[in-house]
Simulated assay, not measured.
Amino acid sequence: MYRFLLSRQWVTITLVALLLVPTMIWLGFWQMDRHDERAARNQLVTDALAADPVPVERLASPGHAVTRAERYRTVTATGRFETDDEVVVRRRTNADDEVGFHVLTPFVLADGAVLLVNRGWIPADGPSQTAFPDIPAPPRGEITIRGRLMPDETTEASGIKDLKGLPDRQIMLVNSELEAERLGARVLGGYVAQTAPEAEGGTPQQLANPGKENAALNYAYAVQWWLFAAAVPVGWVVLVRRENRERTGAAKTPDAEQAEPAAV
Rank of each mutant, 00 (worst) to 15 (best):
R71F: 01
A231M: 10
G120Q: 02
L6P: 00
M150P: 06
V45I: 08
V99S: 05
L116C: 05
P106S: 07
L217M: 14
G126H: 05
D84H: 12
E142D: 13
A251S: 14
T195L: 13
E70T: 12
P55I: 03
L27C: 03
G120D: 03
L217S: 11
V89I: 11
Q31M: 03
P53Q: 12
L18V: 15
V11T: 10
V240N: 03
G211D: 00
R182H: 13
R34A: 08
A180E: 09
T93M: 07
E243T: 12
P53L: 10
V264Y: 14
W225Q: 06
A110Q: 15
P233V: 03
T144I: 06
D97P: 05
Y72W: 08
V103A: 02
N209R: 08
V99C: 01
L27D: 10
L239M: 12
W236K: 00
N94I: 01
E153I: 04
Q170L: 04
Q31R: 15
L207T: 03
E98G: 08
W225K: 04
T23E: 02
E86M: 15
E177N: 04
E213M: 15
G159M: 02
A199G: 11
V238M: 14
A40R: 09
A69M: 12
K212Q: 13
E57D: 11
D111C: 14
E86D: 06
F101K: 06
V232E: 07
L149Q: 13
V234E: 05
D33S: 12
T154W: 08
E213K: 08
A51C: 09
R90L: 08
P55F: 02
P233G: 10
W30R: 07
R71W: 00
M172L: 14
A230P: 00
E86F: 01
A250V: 00
Q206K: 13
P167C: 04
P22K: 07
A48R: 06
E181I: 08
Y2M: 06
N218V: 00
W226T: 00
W226M: 01
A215K: 05
Q43G: 12
D84W: 06
A230F: 04
V99N: 05
R73E: 07
V21I: 08
R247A: 00
E177F: 00
N209P: 07
A69H: 10
S176E: 14
K161G: 09
T93D: 07
L183Y: 09
V89G: 05
T14S: 10
K252N: 03
E260M: 11
V117L: 05
V56R: 14
L178A: 11
A263W: 04
E243W: 01
R34M: 05
A113T: 11
E142G: 13
F107H: 09
V66W: 07
W10C: 06
G201I: 04
G100R: 08
A215P: 03
R58F: 11
L18I: 11
P138F: 11
T67K: 11
W225N: 06
E142K: 12
V114W: 06
L115Y: 13
D97R: 15
R241W: 06
T23C: 12
A263I: 01
I171N: 12
P55E: 01
V232A: 07
N118Q: 09
D33V: 00
E179C: 08
K212G: 04
P106F: 02
L207G: 06
R241M: 12
